[in-house]
Nucleic acid binder design. Structure first.
Length: 414
RNA sequence: GGCGGAGUUCCCGAGCGGUCAAAGGGGCCAGACUGUAAAUCUGGUGGCUAUGCCUUCACAGGUUCGAAUCCUGUUUCCGCCA
């Protein structure tokens, strides 16, 4: 696995560039990329492509797959993927793109469990058997305080504060803790340790990537390039895809669940999704986008679903979606709920209480609101409930519907 | 350490000692429309055994018939000074 590959193993530089630059927002410094690739091809030495993550308990979603897919593409071109598990940086918490400090610090055990879980997930995107994996505790745990001071002496506070996320927090009167300032420094040092040629990440990583170059030069190493992907926007089409914003599509989700979410994205983000999440040639994408948006969206969903499920899962999901959402059929997986026997009186339950008990509304007040707005339905013929105190006759398997999408089926209390 | 400013409901943000569950915007929810979405229009958005009751305006006390609004202490943030 450490065999030096013959020069011919690498495709021509132009071909490599075509693959590498798809969906990439920025390469810095751009002019070095072709040079690096050419040199690698001449010498037969694969480039070392770094990608780092913090094992903070991530459900990998499509936003994460953007740089991971890029890493995969480098692997397919014959380069060496180097994955950094930031078990030490996780103790700090990445301030990038955050408007507040991470709330809790993780224990070593949690971090290790998260790392294992994470690797299992990313194995769907990159080829782990050809990936070099490091935990940055390998080097950080051995550093002395003197080492750390030396490292810190390379960075000025003014530089740190130019980072967009710090600047924003500073401006909005949010705290910035000292240890957070070390985060980019640590991340940059990882690049020194593993001698990276290219680092992948989002555009918000620019500062860290450049700092890594400084530190590498300082150690007489070849300097890395930053290959930065745009931030994938979430289902709302505005903000970055993220778990906390609830606007993400997880790669472990069922085909139908993914399908539903894909169909919800605004039309405007389709070009970005096609470019970043699929390998469909861009001229074909243009044709798709020129056609009906619904068909284009279905095609997009099908492609992505097939990547994380079986090759036919995408088509099946389209059919299910058409039946359920488009034609209005009931979903296949309606949740079965049981209510407390105490709320049943003469075989009926007050409507508002029923919806709360069925878990369709978080509070009675919320259920009352829903009903007063005409968004509560019951029975297989989905009769509208007109009043919060309407007595609903209870039968086994009674169908309840809240709003457009939420359903529940009743189990009689024993 | 000193002085000054600030901390409001999911977020931003307005709030005269009573008429404040608290303006406005965002987000979200529901209804109409639809191609799935967006846009647009309408309504809603603390809780409850519900036309009344209870709990909220950093935290803990206090003044008052009455406090988000006044006072004291604590705490966090920001600014200036040291």
């Amino acid at each position: 696995m450490s065999d030096v590959q013959p020069a011919l193993a690498f495709p021509p530089v132009e071909d490599q560039l075509k693959v590498i630059l798809r969906g990439v927002e920025k390469v810095v410094p751009e002019e070095e990329l072709a040079r690096k690739l050419a040199k690698s091809r001449e010498t037969g030495r694969p480039l070392r492509i770094k990608y780092g993550i913090d094992p903070t308990g991530i459900d990998v979603h499509l936003g994460h797959t953007v740089p991971l897919r890029k890493l995969r593409q480098f692997q397919e071109l014959g380069h060496q993927a180097v994955l950094i598990i930031g078990n030490f940086t996780a103790m700090v918490g990445d301030p990038s793109g955050r408007d507040q400090a991470r709330a809790k610090r993780l224990s070593a055990e949690e971090v290790e469990a998260n790392a294992t879980d994470y690797l299992k997930q990313v194995g769907k995107v990159i080829d782990l058997s050809k990936t070099e994996i490091h935990r940055n505790g390998e080097w950080f745990s051995k550093m002395t305080f003197a080492d750390i001071l030396t490292l810190c002496s390379k960075v000025t506070v003014a530089q740190l504060l130019t980072r967009d996320d710090f600047a924003k927090r500073y401006a909005s009167q949010s705290p910035i803790f000292l240890h957070e300032c070390l985060y980019p420094v640590m991340q940059a040092w990882d690049s020194v340790e593993i001698k990276s040629d290219i680092e992948l990440g989002g555009t918000e990583q620019l500062y860290s990537f450049m700092l890594a170059r400084d530190l590498q030069r300082d150690q007489q190493l070849e300097q890395q390039l930053g290959v930065m992907s745009p931030i994938l926007v979430g289902l709302d089409g505005k903000r970055r895809m993220g778990k906390s914003l609830g606007n993400y599509i997880g790669i472990a989700e069922s085909p139908l669940a993914m399908m539903k979410k894909f169909m919800q994205i605004p039309d405007e983000v389709m070009p970005m999704y096609f470019e970043l999440l699929t390998n469909i040639p861009l001229d074909e994408v243009q044709q798709l986008l020129a056609g009906h948006p619904k068909l284009a969206k279905q095609r997009l969903a099908r492609e992505v679903i097939a990547q994380y499920h079986t090759s036919t899962a995408g088509d099946e999901a389209i059919q299910q979606w058409e039946a359920e959402v488009s034609a209005g059929a009931l979903p296949a997986d309606i949740e079965q709920v049981t209510i407390e026997a105490s709320v049943v009186s003469n075989g009926t339950v007050t409507a508002a209480i029923l919806f709360k008990q069925a878990g369709l509304c978080p509070t009675t007040s919320d259920a009352r609101r829903l009903i007063s707005q005409g968004g509560a339905y019951f029975g297989d013929d989905l009769q509208v409930i007109s009043s919060h105190d309407q007595a609903i006759p209870i039968t086994n398997g009674l169908l309840l519907k809240a709003g457009k999408k939420r359903y529940a089926r009743l189990n009689l209390p024993s």
